[in-house]
């Protein structure tokens, strides 16, 4: 089963940010789906977890102050951890993603997104903000180590009412981004020697690895001198 986590940071209800998130999700699921419905929360072998960041506003503020996620936020972070890919959509606020959108990524532990395919999208009142995707969202996800889909999707208010004005329409862009994300999720043959590469990686002090794979203390002490 493929798991997709969809993060929508719109504040109003209904929200055009959520609308864009839903369109992207439908198209991605369509690309990945095997066609047979197989459960309550999966369609054709794809499970979708939608995270409405607005509902997590208070737990996010608490997390910043206390250092740990509570309740619904913990569940949302687990959904992101378990996801094979992410679709993230933010409204544009003051020439960037919204503060609430950023807070969610601020509280994730380092490396949680490393290597995960992420489809970037944003909404705004006018197309003048469209480069926010390239100037704000893409650098953020590059820093987090995610693999961003080449096509990022921007929807200004006018896009919901107009067909293509001299370029691909919103639906075309959604389709292209969804296809690119689905391609990133195609099964690839296992790389041989991965285990070896993991072992060769230097020990990361304080990482959660130590709980599942304890390192002999004499090795730890020796690595201090290295």
């Amino acid at each position: 089963m493929t798991r997709i986590a969809v993060l929508s940071a719109g504040l109003s209800n209904p929200s055009s940010t959520r609308l864009l998130a839903d369109r992207l999700t439908d198209r991605v699921v369509g690309r990945l789906s095997t066609g047979s419905p197989d459960g309550d929360d999966t369609q054709g072998g794809v499970r979708v977890d939608v995270i409405e960041v607005r509902e997590l506003a208070h737990p996010l503020a608490d997390n910043l102050l206390t250092g740990f996620p509570s309740g619904a936020l913990e569940a949302a972070i687990e959904a992101v951890r378990a996801a094979d890919a992410l679709i993230v959509v933010s409204p544009v606020f003051a020439a960037s993603y919204s503060g609430l959108f950023k807070m969610f990524f601020d509280v994730l532990e380092p490396d949680l997104l490393r290597g995960k395919p992420v489809l970037l999208a944003a909404t705004a009142g006018t197309a003048r903000h469209s480069l926010v995707l390239e100037h704000a969202l893409r650098p953020l996800f590059a820093y987090l180590g995610a693999t961003t889909v080449p096509t990022a999707v921007f929807a200004a208010s006018e896009d919901w009412g107009s067909a293509a004005a001299g370029g691909p329409s919103l639906n075309d862009r959604i389709d292209r981004a969804a296809t690119e994300l689905a391609a990133l999720l195609a099964p690839v043959p296992a790389v041989s020697g991965t285990d070896h590469a993991d072992r060769a990686r230097p020990h990361r002090w304080g990482s959660a690895d130590g709980f599942e794979h304890p390192v002999e203390f004499t090795d730890l002490l020796r690595s201090v001198q290295a």
Partner: peptide, 12 residues
């Protein structure tokens, strides 16, 4: 609070 190396150290 959360560094596994320190639990390892105490145990060793």
């Amino acid at each position: 609070i959360r560094s596994p190396e320190i639990a390892e150290q105490a145990a060793y």
